[in-house]
Computed example of a mutant assay.
Amino acid sequence: MLANMAAALDIISGGRLELGIGAGWNEEESGAYGIELGSIKERMDRFEEACQVLTSLLSQETTTFNGRYYQLKDARNEPKGPQRPHPPICIGGSGEKRTLRITARYAQHWNFVGGPAEEFARKRDVLAAHCADIGRDPEAITLSAHLFLGPDRNYGQVIENAAALEAEGLDLGIVYIAPPHDPAVLQPLAEAIRDSGLCDRE
């Protein structure tokens, strides 16, 4: 179902879809909807299978898969979206043994959930090592991170954090704004980013 929805959105958006996926973490939300997440190991096992199934359904004519969690026989997903071989996949998380290994194999975009530049750099190196293990160029993966604008609206701190992460290879910063959400923060934030020169760097 997710592959079908993703293909439809890729078509409707004219090839602008980026598919963000993960193993599941919000137990409170899942419990409220009656969704059984399972143990962390079960989540990661299911997620790794899901990545295989999704990439195949979004790129191959038919998919046959016999896993623990997913079983498909000559499954079709048509029509496919315009992005080839499939819409870029974004995986967020920092687990060094499973999440970053799965990211190295299947993702075009890795999202670091936030933290100091030193931690980002260490996780980046783990991801690069997993890429080396399978012969993939780590430069093929976009690196992003969350940047937090707190209630104090310290725009300078956001810029400082972004610059420190950029120095360690960050490609994209995603700013999270603390509630209550107020559109008035957007203009000074945009001006601070513009004045920093970060957007002008290659």
Rank of each mutant, 00 (worst) to 15 (best):
K73W: 11
W110N: 06
T55M: 07
E27T: 07
R76Y: 15
I89N: 01
L172N: 12
I91K: 06
T142I: 06
L58E: 07
N66T: 12
G115R: 01
N4M: 07
P85G: 04
S94R: 08
E119D: 11
D200Q: 12
D200H: 10
S59C: 07
E160M: 06
I11S: 11
N111D: 11
A184K: 02
D10F: 03
C199I: 08
A178W: 01
A132H: 14
I102S: 05
S94L: 07
Y70L: 05
E168N: 15
A140Y: 00
G14V: 06
R98F: 10
G15I: 12
I40Q: 15
L198R: 04
S30Q: 13
G93Q: 12
L198V: 05
G92A: 13
E191N: 07
I134S: 02
R122H: 13
Y33I: 00
D125P: 00
H181Y: 14
E28A: 14
S56N: 14
V175L: 00
Q71P: 12
I11G: 11
C90V: 09
T103W: 03
Q52E: 13
G115F: 01
A32Q: 06
G114Q: 05
H130V: 09
L147R: 04
L143V: 05
C90F: 08
A164S: 09
N154L: 08
E139Q: 07
A104S: 15
P116I: 10
P88D: 03
A6W: 08
I21S: 01
A32F: 06
G169E: 09
D125M: 03
E61H: 10
Y70W: 11
D195C: 01
R105K: 14
T62R: 10
M44T: 03
I177V: 10
E118Q: 12
P179F: 00
P116V: 13
A50P: 08
R105Q: 14
D171N: 14
K123L: 05
P151Y: 02
G95K: 05
G34Q: 09
R124H: 09
E27Y: 04
G34C: 14
P87R: 01
V113F: 08
A132V: 10
I12Y: 06
V113M: 09
Q108G: 11
S144R: 06
I102Y: 02
A178T: 02
D133V: 03
A8T: 13
I174S: 07
Q60W: 07
A140K: 04
T64R: 07
R16M: 02
Q71S: 15
E29C: 15
D195K: 05
C90Q: 11
L186I: 11
G24M: 10
D74R: 09
L189P: 00
G15E: 05
F120S: 11
D137V: 04
L143W: 04
A107C: 09
E166P: 06
G173K: 03
G197L: 04
A107S: 12
A128V: 02
F148G: 00
K123S: 02
A107K: 04
I12C: 00
A192Q: 01
D182A: 06
G34E: 15
A164V: 03
R98K: 13
Q83C: 10
A164D: 07
S144E: 06
G22E: 02
